[in-house]
């Protein structure tokens, strides 16, 4: 095969995600150089494959996925939503890097692979930014004389430990170590104790090393203590599962 027909073939193989090796590198360069016919062919192929997939079969998604997502977007502030003042420089630098890279890449036709990489980088940066913001906010909270630190221990005597850095006005942060990951379909839920009823204060999962740090929203009566129970992954309005950790 010679000339542009080679690229038409590569575009088709690329569209079904099967291009590899030198062909992949060659085609991505070609696409990044701004070949309009290839970009159009790729777009049309993706639309056709999407239509094919939509006509495929029917299967109802499990209901818990939506509730988990809604909980997730409700608790985690979105990327770049509210940069804290202290984190501003990092944020600005990261944003500038993304913008610069985006500008560089969009000068031609942006190959979807580069978009994917860029998306991946942006996601990583957003996650990093979130982590920084969380740590800075926790530090800021510790400077406030009204902030207290509540320790939660496992009643069974395991070495799991949690601390809640708590401020009645600003809310707080939960920091957990040595807690085994929740079983499939389950999540840990934090409760603020002291009102008439335990107040749900957030669902969480720990990472593979048994750790997590997350924000706890202010609200309700000033809590006298905290407890963690094991609950269905979608969370419950009142505790139903076993107490995993509690403050004294």
């Amino acid at each position: 095969m010679n000339g542009h027909e080679t690229y038409e073939t590569l575009a088709a193989v690329y569209a079904v995600g099967a291009l590899d090796g030198d062909d992949l590198a060659q085609f991505e360069v070609h696409l990044a150089e701004g070949c309009q016919p290839c970009a159009t062919a790729l777009r049309e192929s993706r639309e056709a494959l999407a239509r094919l997939a939509l006509g495929d079969t029917r299967a109802v998604p499990p209901a818990e996925v939506k509730s988990a997502l809604m909980a997730r977007i409700g608790t985690a502030p979105r990327a770049a939503a509210r940069p804290s003042r202290a984190g501003w420089l990092t944020w600005a630098a990261a944003t500038a890097a993304v913008v610069a890279l985006a500008a560089m890449l969009t000068s031609g036709i942006v190959a979807s692979r580069y978009e994917a990489r860029l998306g991946q980088m942006a996601r990583e940066m957003a996650a990093e930014r979130e982590r920084l913001q969380r740590e800075e906010a926790a530090l800021e909270l510790l400077r406030d004389p009204a902030t207290r630190v509540v320790e939660l221990r496992s009643p069974s005597g395991s070495n799991a430990i949690a601390r809640v850095i708590w401020n009645d006005k600003a809310g707080g942060h939960l920091i957990v170590s040595n807690l085994p990951p929740a079983p499939e379909g389950k999540a840990y839920e934090l409760w603020a104790l002291g009102g008439a009823q335990p107040r749900p204060a957030g669902l969480f999962q720990v990472d593979a090393s048994g750790r997590v740090a997350q924000k706890v929203e202010a609200g309700g009566e000033p809590p006298k203590g905290f407890a963690v129970t094991l609950e269905p992954a979608t969370g419950v309005p009142a505790p139903t599962g076993p107490i995993v950790m509690a403050s004294r």
Binding site: G17, R43, R46, E47, L49, A50, R51, A53, L54, S112
Partner: peptide, 12 residues
């Protein structure tokens, strides 16, 4: 691309 293609490509 359409939102359908955007989501299907990502899902695939």
């Amino acid at each position: 691309g359409t939102p359908e293609a955007w989501m299907i490509t990502r899902a695939r």
